[in-house]
Amino acid sequence: MIDICNLGKVFRRPAWALAARPRTGARSVRALRDVTLTVGRGEVLALVGPNGAGKTTLLRILATLLLPTEGSARIGGADVVRESGRAKRLLGLAAGDDQGFYWRLSGLENLEFFAGLLGMHAAAGRRRATEALERADLLPMAREPVGRYSTGLRQRLAIARALLGDPPVLLFDEPTRSLDPVAAAGFRTLAAALAREHHRTVVMATHNLEEAELLADRAAILTGGIVRETVAMDGPGGLTRRYHTLLGRPQ
């Protein structure tokens, strides 16, 4: 479902932007180098690694938000650069720090708007929005303005938005970062059901190794923009041990 081949990304400060940007700092930063991964239909892949490892950059390239510097990535056969429109129809993205809502509108109104951008007309959009809110356990808050939502509730709303178009590929960036333990468990149950029962492909960046072990079929350990190792889940603690072997234990 997802094919990533020799993907690389270097952030360069463009010459024309020198006047508009801070002149301090490095002129270029390599965020990803030679990443090759394949994720099958119904598979859950966890991206783990320290801060700055390139997890979010990889997810953003897959989400068509960022252009890679080299290599290619395909979602359902659609190249994320050349066929970004088709790729966008196949994916849903939810980020842990998602601010992408209109705070004066209710959760339902927000999702109805995004459903419109997915090409759904009013009635279908409302139905899908209600279903997505139900899946994210947000129906009781559906008519409240998003400004009154807690961080965790907004995160659940972002997950609901990712589910709105029922896409075959779901990209989650630290999906449980602000969730309470019950909501986090609810997310894991939902993500597992989406993968196992509905054969959705899930790629999830997380710092929570236990969560990755519970949910993922495989985990890619990234450091410095490189996939150091892809680990198949073979029982509790396996990923954590491998991660600490590669990256060292916290003192």
């Binding site: 429109g85 966008k88 809502f101 209109y102 995004f114 951008l117």
Partner: peptide
């Protein structure tokens, strides 16, 4: 300013329509 531009651009709506 609202932080919604990324969300809009990740959705499949065409830029002219948006």
């Amino acid at each position: 300013l609202g932080g919604t531009i990324e969300t809009l651009l990740v959705l499949p709506a065409s830029f002219p329509a948006l």
